[in-house]
Simulated assay, not measured.
Amino acid sequence: MPLSYTGAGTLRAATAMTVLGCSTGATAGLTGYPLHGGQTLRYLLAAAVLLPLARRGGPLRPRLTGAELARLALLAAAGLFAFNVLLVQALRHSDPAAVGSVIGCTPLLLAVLGPLLARRRPQVRLLAAAGVVVAGAAVTQGAGPGDLPGFLYALGTLACEAAFSLLAVGLLPRLGPVRVSAYTTAFAVPLFGLTGLVLDGDRMVRMPTPGEAAALLYLSLVLTVLAFLLWYGALGRLGPERAGLFAGLVPVTAALSGAALGTGGLHPAELLGSGLVGLGVCAGLAVRRAPEDAARPAPVPAGR
């Protein structure tokens, strides 16, 4: 039996956030590789896959307007470039658990800003559900040591994470998930490439080790191509408030994948946090959509 429109969005959002949570091991495998060069290679490979997907079936239609080009450029600058740079800086000052606890507030931020940007009042029950998800993510992630610069960098990372979804909402109905993903990754390539040339010169790229090459392939093909398509497809079906609830799965799946791979243990607090995240997500999905939200047009088919 085929999934409902909302059910398909739920599955896509959950899968995208699971892929993101499981990417922690791949990211850790690139800590010794030049930051800007590695990200340039990552998004270049992803764009090489996504742009042909966007063009399948003939010339790209509809043509981009100047406002859409500016929005896509801002999406790439904030959601991809600034996010990755700020995340690295935050991790240099703070423990990953502390950074993760701040970024874990994404569901609550989307539950507030999503309706406000659409000129709607946030739904109280959805805010409560987002709060439960945030609490579960915090319990799962824990709180580690850090300093004020690390906290500020983490706040910037949180803002960029929210921008990755909120800036895309207005583009998806006309362009669809494939084109938004393809254009955003294409815009990210010169951002990282030019910055790498200025800051690192000829040291921005080197031959990766087998482990680094595997990590780059995962981040390019699985996280960037697959998860981007799934996430933007979910946004078009659920809206940022409900889709954002699934961001609470990131620390949960990171902990579970670490235990499965033997790189970490599974503790009672993580099990409790996982239960809270699941409870919050279910409660949020049970909240009836606002009339204005339900009336939002669906994205155009992929590749159109």
Rank of each mutant, 00 (worst) to 15 (best):
M1V: 14
L72G: 05
T185L: 01
L229Y: 05
P122W: 00
P240G: 09
D202H: 12
P34W: 02
R203S: 14
A213F: 03
G284Y: 05
L256C: 03
V189D: 00
L256P: 02
L276D: 06
L87Y: 14
P34L: 03
F246P: 15
S257G: 06
A128T: 14
P297L: 02
A247R: 07
G79C: 10
P2L: 05
R237V: 08
G244T: 15
P107Y: 13
D293H: 05
L116T: 10
G131W: 08
R56I: 13
P34C: 05
V225I: 12
L171T: 10
A128M: 08
D202Q: 12
V49Y: 03
A154T: 13
G273R: 03
A48C: 06
T184V: 08
L126C: 04
G258Y: 02
G100E: 04
V112L: 15
T157G: 15
H93F: 07
L158D: 10
R289H: 13
G37L: 01
G114M: 01
R237G: 04
G244M: 06
A26W: 08
G264I: 02
L109Y: 08
P115D: 07
L3A: 10
L72C: 09
L167P: 08
V124I: 11
G201N: 03
L86K: 09
F83D: 10
L272Q: 03
Y218R: 06
P149L: 09
P301S: 08
R120F: 08
L219K: 07
Q141Y: 00
A186W: 00
G176E: 09
D202Y: 10
R55Q: 12
A290L: 12
A213E: 01
G264M: 00
G280W: 00
R237T: 08
T40H: 04
A247I: 15
L199E: 10
A130K: 04
G21K: 07
A129I: 15
V178M: 06
